[in-house]
Write a protein that binds this DNA or RNA. Structure first.
Length: 836
DNA sequence: ATAGGGTTAG
């Protein structure tokens, strides 16, 4: 059919040339071989054509243009196919300006030349492929004859710039004009169907394909697989795939990608293996997709294999494949491998940089992520919206509002804040930095609100327990036609449990189900932990059961929450059952579960089992050491607690404040003064851990209970904190000797200045005076309580009872009569009974 | 005709 381009009488001497098979074909165009009967003129024309043609295929467009000029100067008129050849070269090189110069020359050659169908079509294709949408469209609309090739060019262009409906309208219109779509337009039409998720239209095209017999074409079949995959019709995609007589690597890849896009990563990996079994060499695309599937599944073995295949096949330095490898290592948190891949990559583009930054964030290495941002800038790479959303996440994670504001400012200066992802990151950052007011401001100023943006603000209110605001927003989003998804419902429930509204949380939990929204793992876990935090431990355990019945498999977070519920109700029975569950579901080796188990067994009185769990952990982390130390502290085994501390140090784990609080309280409970002091000294000198108020409290308690009240008092005076009522009370409670009376006076004065209205303090003071035999002071305390209007407090009554009893014993030594005892007890009054 | 990066809930 292409021979039609050579019917123009003016160029009839080109008739000897074999017709061009196809404009889009990659096959070289063959002219008839030189033979003796042709004229010199023809010979040199053919030589020029050959030379220009091969220069264009080599991408040497300028040299080809020079030859064209030479032809002109030798008065050899160049025909349309020479212009076509150079234009095609421009298409390959995406060389818009040379093509435009050629276009100008075409116009100079006169209307007859310019209106040649072949040239006109080539020009449309050229402008379409070089992205000059308006020019291509304009030329196309002025075409007298719109052939399949120009239609294909314009439909392809519309596809590429996302005008999918228009592309399909064109596909329709060309058929109405009596043109039969060829196997080059059909893939574009299918691509548009896939992008629009128009499965019905796509099936129609599939019908057409079968009718005209294009179904044997790998291009068309691959496009069908892709279209079905994008529309989520995996069975149809598979049917086309299975029906293919010959599959090339692209068909295989389309199938793999289809599975991945629908979350069917296992199947994608299966197809990749089948492909290798059939001896088809995986391309960059195959390996890159395989790596995505491995990353999504956290399949470390597969992903590493993918990396190895990439290296073996020599794709190691491919930019896109390299970033897929990087992404895989990042998602499975093999950060050292990710770093290695990054360092070895030859061309690092903005995606590569963004990947290494998000790798660090994913592994919780916020500072390293920020270092990478600085490095990225110093390598003259510009931040884009992906970089910024990562920076904002870094700011949110570290509650660094200064950094967050800088990021926000950068977004405004570079007009990135209209990006929905960036907007959500800004809102989330302000909320996590404690500035919900700013978060709301940004939220309101964002014009395009997607569901994630709504959910970000919902979560912000929910986290801090503003359940009313959460609910209001939840209704408001529906007024603005955004239907809440599971995440929205989860935040709503979170808001209630964080505000102690357990009833409401349960109410909305059942409401979401009646509206057809299925609770997911996070919903169940939110409810479970929420119930437990509000003291409803048995209900939490019931939820743990129910979630399994509904087919949701608890993970480490829900399981350890359930274990902590057992701990709180000291139910060894439930605890053992959940321990069994964890083992059956391969969660037993998870460090967070082991930690919860140690805690549970210890608090349920089963120290030996706690130790057993602890000893079975292969690589221990700080929290589980802390749990074990606190278990020994609880059971009064200070020596064992200190032994675990030594193990921890030997294992190279750095202890924290909690570790020392537990060790110190173990020493206190067992009265090991020297060991306690030694621990405190080690904490400061060996571990450079600055002692908290709580640590000083332990030490004061330890010293005072073994009679070293003066030392304890000196400690209170020299510690770098303002002493609070608790620590003073601790010491005061241990002042039990006559010679400590001055100390009692000082402490009392201080305590009453701190908390003049706390009746508990008065009792503590009067106890101290009573122990010292200073009943005069006791009655003064009682009087000042009455002055302070604290006489109704049970504490005041107790003091009076104490005074009375003392007078019986110390007075004349006589035994009190029944009436006297009754009168004394009456002093306690109704308050005493009610508070008992 | 097919491939790479960022946002929300426990």
């Amino acid at each position: 059919m292409a021979s039609l381009y050579f019917t123009t009488p003016h160029f009839s001497h080109f008739k000897s040339a074999k017709p061009i098979k196809s404009l889009n074909s990659n096959e070289p165009i063959h002219l008839t071989q030189f033979n003796g009967s042709t004229t010199n003129h023809q010979t040199s024309y053919k030589s020029y054509f050959h030379a220009i043609s091969s220069l264009c295929k080599d991408g040497q467009i300028q040299q080809a243009v020079d030859l064209l000029t030479e032809m002109d100067s030798r008065n050899i008129p160049a025909g349309p196919e020479i212009y076509g050849e150079i234009l095609q070269g421009c298409v390959y090189q995406r060389d818009l300006s040379t093509g435009q110069q050629l276009h100008a020359q075409v116009l100079k050659n006169g209307a007859f030349f310019a209106r040649n169908e072949y040239i006109e079509t080539k020009l449309v294709i050229f402008y379409a492929k070089c992205g000059a949408f308006d020019i291509a469209n304009d030329l196309f609309s002025r075409l007298r004859v719109k052939n399949v090739f120009s239609w294909a060019a314009i439909i392809g262009l519309k596809c590429r710039i996302g005008l999918n409906e228009e592309a399909l309208m064109g596909f329709h219109e060309m058929q109405e004009n009596g043109l039969l779509p060829d196997n080059f337009v059909v893939p574009n039409a299918l691509k548009a169907c896939g992008a629009l998720l128009w499965l019905g239209y796509g099936k129609g095209v599939h019908g057409f394909v079968v009718k005209v017999g294009f179904d044997g074409c790998v291009f068309v079949a691959s496009s069908l697989i892709d279209m079905y995959g994008k529309c989520g019709a995996l069975e149809d995609a598979r049917k086309v795939f299975d029906g293919m007589i010959e599959r090339n690597v692209i068909a295989w890849n389309s199938m793999i990608v289809g599975y991945i896009q629908n979350g069917m990563n296992e199947q994608a990996i299966g197809v990749f293996h089948d492909m290798r079994v059939e001896g088809v060499e995986p391309s960059q695309v195959s390996i890159s997709s395989f790596l995505s599937a491995s990353a999504n599944l956290g399949a470390i073995g597969e992903g590493k294999q993918g990396h190895a295949i990439a290296v073996v096949r020599g794709f190691e330095f491919d930019s896109i494949l390299g970033s897929s490898v990087l992404n895989f290592y990042s998602k499975v948190c093999l950060i050292e491998d990710a770093e290695l891949v990054f360092d070895r990559m030859l061309e690092k583009d903005v995606v590569t940089w963004n990947l290494i930054i998000s790798s660090y964030l994913h592994c919780g290495l916020t500072d390293k992520a920020l270092d990478m941002c600085h490095l990225m800038r110093s390598e003259n790479m510009r931040f884009d919206c992906v970089t910024l959303s990562s920076i904002l996440v870094a700011a949110a994670n570290s509650s660094n509002i200064k950094l967050g504001k800088e990021g926000h400012g950068y977004c405004i200066r570079n007009s990135l804040q209209s990006d929905v992802v960036v907007a959500s990151s800004i809102v989330d950052m302000y909320a996590k930095c404690g500035r919900i007011d700013y978060a709301v401001q940004v939220f309101c100023s964002t014009t395009k609100k997607d569901i994630i943006l709504w959910n970000t603000l919902l979560a912000a209110y929910a986290r801090v327990g503003h359940s009313g605001e959460t609910l209001k927003l939840f209704y408001q989003m529906q007024l603005e036609s955004v239907t809440p998804n599971v995440t929205s419902w989860n935040s709503l429930i979170l808001g209630f449990v964080r505000n102690r509204q357990v009833t409401e949380a349960k109410e909305f939990f059942s409401q979401m189900q009646s509206l057809g929204v299925h609770p997911n793992l996070i919903t169940w876990t939110t409810l479970l932990t929420g119930l437990a935090h509000n003291g409803f431990h048995y209900e939490a355990l019931k939820i743990f059961q129910e979630m399994q019945e509904s087919g949701i498999k608890p993970n480490t977070i829900s399981t350890s929450s359930a274990l902590s519920a057992c701990t709180n109700v000291t139910s060894l029975q439930h605890g053992k059952a959940i321990h069994g569950y964890a083992i059956r579901h391969d969660l037993g080796s998870q460090i967070s579960i082991s930690t919860a188990l140690v805690d549970m067994y210890a608090k349920c009185g089963c120290l030996s089992r706690a130790k057993m769990v602890f000893d079975n952990i292969a690589s221990k982390e700080l929290p589980v050491y802390n749990a074990m130390i606190s278990a020994y502290a609880l059971h009064g085994q200070a020596g064992e607690a200190r032994a675990v501390l030594r193990n921890l140090e030997e294992a190279g784990v750095e202890p924290d404040g909690i570790t020392f609080t537990s060790v110190l309280s173990a020493c206190t409970h067992t009265g090991l003064v020297n060991e306690g002091l030694e621990t405190f000294v080690d904490m400061v000198s060996k571990h450079h851990c600055s002692p908290s108020m709580e640590h000083y409290g332990c030490l004061v308690s330890l010293l005072s209970q073994s009679g070293r009240v003066d030392e304890a008092f000196r400690l209170i005076l020299t510690m770098p904190y303002e002493p609070d009522a608790e620590i003073i009370g601790t010491l005061l409670a241990k002042c039990r000797k006559h010679n400590e009376i001055e100390l009692v006076e000082q402490l009392s004065k201080y305590l009453l200045e701190l908390e003049p209205d706390n009746s508990g303090n008065y009792v503590a003071i009067s106890n101290a005076y009573a122990a010292a035999g200073r009943w005069d002071e006791v009655s003064k305390i009682r009087d000042s309580m009455k002055e302070k209007d604290l006489k109704k407090s049970p504490g005041c009554s107790w003091i009076q009872v104490g005074e009375k009893l003392h007078s019986f014993i110390a007075g004349d030594g006589s035994h009190p009569s029944t009436e006297e005892i009754q009168a004394t007890l009456d002093l306690l009054g109704t308050d005493m009974n009610s508070s008992a």
